[in-house]
Design a protein around this nucleic acid. Sequence first.
DNA 1: CGTTTTGTTGAGCACGCGTTCAACAAAGGG
DNA 2: CCCTTTGTTGAACGCGTGCTCAACAAAACG
Lengths: 200, 200
Amino acid sequence: MGRRPTWTEPELLATVMAVFRRKGFAHTSVRDLEQATGLHPGSLYKAYGNKEGLFTAALAAYNEQVAAHRVRIHLDETDPPLRGLHAFFVSTFDGGEEANPGCLLTNTAVEAPALAGVGRDAVAAGLELIEAGFRRMLERAIAAGDLPPTTPNDQRAAELLALYQGVLVLVRFGTAPAKLAGIVAHALPALLATHTQGEH
Amino acid sequence: MGRRPTWTEPELLATVMAVFRRKGFAHTSVRDLEQATGLHPGSLYKAYGNKEGLFTAALAAYNEQVAAHRVRIHLDETDPPLRGLHAFFVSTFDGGEEANPGCLLTNTAVEAPALAGVGRDAVAAGLELIEAGFRRMLERAIAAGDLPPTTPNDQRAAELLALYQGVLVLVRFGTAPAKLAGIVAHALPALLATHTQGEH
DNA sequence: CGTTTTGTTGAGCACGCGTTCAACAAAGGG
DNA sequence: CCCTTTGTTGAACGCGTGCTCAACAAAACG
């Protein structure tokens, strides 16, 4: 090769990802990325084509590095499963004030409703990754006897995903962690409680 | 005055608001607004100072026109109250495919975490408007005997707001209305059901 | 050691952005 | 009926944007 890359690709993408995550796609300029990475535009464009390609790669990196990691740690490897679920939610806002830039998937889903195919697919894949994690965790909880199988796991997982996205909106807005903790602590058990479909 | 305004202010802001709501602040150019309103930049800038002023005014208009209206219709004037709550959620996605651009408050909360004071205050005011609507609706439901007062209304309202934001994220992403309907139909009764704080 | 291959450099381009302003046109006031 | 006031016009400006490219430098290869 030529001059040895200053970055390994995952590290580079993690850096780029962090900027997109904090500022959003539109508010991030290529010069922001230059400053964050120390690389000059030619390098970035040679490797990723354009700003959208850079964003797409960062989104994929987010799925692989951040989302999948959180799912594995909290939803797949924590016992009891429902405790892992709680930790999964809390992990979005327990890092102090400025440490929680929200979720790149949530931010992207909201920012670009008409986003081009690849970007949309990446968001869909990320959300499905999380929802599938919820389903696996629910199965473990049922197997452990912590949860009565009164509602299909698909249904419960979809509801958990919706609540999760909502929490992430509030996180990004800057809602106080104490309030978020209260929401999560009560809403998760309530959502999962057995229930003969309520009247309203 | 001079040439009679082509627009009444609320109509103008409703038009501007629709563009911001669909495209987001960053992706909306002043030329987009020119095209949507038929007004030329000088007029817009004379009245609102700059693009952010225009956005702030549109945000206030959203609170007064859209959010407050929905709260009143569904949360304050529908009986039984819990049926109104359901309708409030469903109203975010029952308008067909392209008809539901999501919520300007949600979109703004996500897009601009570091938004300047006024914009942030407007979002906070809008969210509080909705949360207060939830609280009033909960009081009515309890008074009507439809809901046991086992959990403080503040707590319940906060959870409903979180779920609401999550649904709006999914709406904006383009999740199928049938799936959203399933989420809402089951999650709302579950969230409100009486519960001795679950273990997990 | 020459050649190729590959990542890097950084000045620079065209474009669209937010914004301004001098000129104008229609209503109100005395 | 003039003068002021006020909303409108639209060309134009400076700037920051996304992006390009010719030159270059270091590893890989035989």
